[in-house]
Amino acid sequence: MISQMFSFLWKEFLVEWRNKSVLGAILLYAFSTVYIIYSFQNFKKLSAEELYSSWNILFWLVILFITVNAISKSFNHEGSGRYLYYYTIANPTAFILAKILYGILSVLLLSLITLFLFILFFGFPFQQFYIFLLAMFFGGGGLAIIFVLISAIASKVENNFVLVSIMGFPLILPFMAFTMQLSELSFAWFDTGLTKNVIILALFDVLLVVLSVILFPFIWRN
């Protein structure tokens, strides 16, 4: 099963690599959003405190839309014939785990790029940078997991891009709020409740993976 998972993961990389336009589109998307925010003049006039909170909110907004764009396509290129083929030869757990792993990796890569862009354009406001990286890892990872399962459901239905947003946004809203509270700590000097929040977020990610693994076979079956 592990080897199957890695071969699926490798396949995802290959598909992505051969179809560079998708990756390029998302990168362009990230760059242009950050640039739009930068070119909004009032943003530069904010006081330090206002800047931190808007930094946080804008960053997570950009990450959210990048995630939606990156992940919602992940099941699109699998035609129904290919599904049937996988179904006969592969283990659904390996398949979904590969998708989730790939989703997490791509979201982390994209959010690192976005973070770099943000620092480039808006400066480096962090007091405790590692907290932000933690929030990015667990929060961004959780986003990726939720959207992988949602897009798996949506891929079985017509006009699915709209459905991904409709089904996904209510589910990730509280999750985002929680992640943003954690990442806000990185702008402060203190770290009260940090370990507890990180543990909750990590447990939550694990729960999401378990749920996806249990539920995915039902989506897969035809």
Partner: peptide, 29 residues
Amino acid sequence: GRLAAVYNIFAFVLYIIFIYVIPKFSSSL
């Protein structure tokens, strides 16, 4: 039916966690 059932389970678990579990453990909510 199958897709809706999967989404229902997923949504319910997230909902319960966010409404009932996290506010109890977190000082920030």
